[in-house]
């Protein structure tokens, strides 16, 4: 809730309890605004089209003044899940977890167990580590084994006139959306984890995968 309070004048608090829509920002009572609150998930082909990029954003609606003190929690695992057999059960995971200013990545690797509980696959020989980029400095990137890694604050890439949608749902904007609309997420930041992976480490050519991201706390 602390982060929310920094976004003044857009009515988030007033409408959040009634009907929240954002990408996944503040989506549920147990996680909203906290260190495990996933705001967004992206998966797309990289600049090198032989690679796939996975992005997890957490801790949304950070004002610039709140961003420098925003931290990845060391007891929170961010886990990218990849199902390459079509049953919506993860066959591979990429795990990201921070420690002492660095983000450690393990995988893509088969998880020890699927589902709601995870152990860190730190014996994996695939992965890497990157210094977490401090606010106000250039992006720190590392590469290892064909993979690239980043962790740190970024502009929230999500865009949506959330305020007007909320007004519509609340019944106070019978005319619908405005044109042009106003991006409620303009000027706000998130904490991002970005990993680029050769497709060959994910699935065979021509495969359509199912993928999702989870946050898990020790």
């Amino acid at each position: 809730m602390k982060n929310l309070k920094t976004v003044i004048g857009i009515g988030v608090i007033a409408v959040a309890s009634f009907f929240v829509i954002a990408a996944d920002h503040i989506d549920a009572p147990a996680v909203k605004g906290g260190s495990s609150d996933i705001t967004d998930f992206y998966a797309f082909r990289g600049q090198n089209t032989d690679n796939m990029v996975f992005v997890a954003n957490i801790q949304g609606l950070l004002s610039p003044s709140a961003t420098s003190s925003a931290k990845f929690a060391e007891d929170v695992l961010i886990e990218f899940n990849i199902d390459n057999t079509g049953d919506n059960v993860e066959d591979l995971v990429i795990q990201a977890i921070s420690k002492n200013g660095k983000m450690y990545f393990f995988g893509p690797v088969a998880p020890a167990q699927t589902g709601l509980n995870s152990t860190i696959q730190y014996t994996s020989t695939i992965g890497g580590v990157v210094d977490i980029t401090p606010y106000g400095t250039n992006a720190k990137i590392s590469t290892n084994g064909g993979m690239s890694f980043f962790a740190g604050p970024r502009d929230d890439p999500f865009f949506f006139d959330f305020a007007q949608y909320s007004a519509i749902i609340a019944g106070t904007a019978t005319g619908g959306f405005n044109n042009p609309g106003a991006d409620t997420f303009a000027g706000t930041n998130v904490l991002s984890i970005v990993v680029e992976v050769p497709k060959s480490m994910i699935a065979g050519s021509g495969t359509t995968i199912n993928t999702w991201v989870e946050s898990k706390r020790k």
Binding site: I21, A22, D27, A28, P29, I97, K99, S118, E214, K216
Partner: peptide, 29 residues
């Protein structure tokens, strides 16, 4: 670093806005 222990799920997401739009308030967690 010590990465031992079991990590239990708190949030998840596939497509944008699914939980927020389609899940009733009492069921979001």
């Amino acid at each position: 670093p010590d990465f031992s222990g079991t990590y239990s799920q708190e949030d998840q997401m596939g497509r944008p806005a699914i939980n927020t739009v389609f899940v009733s308030a009492a069921s979001k967690d």
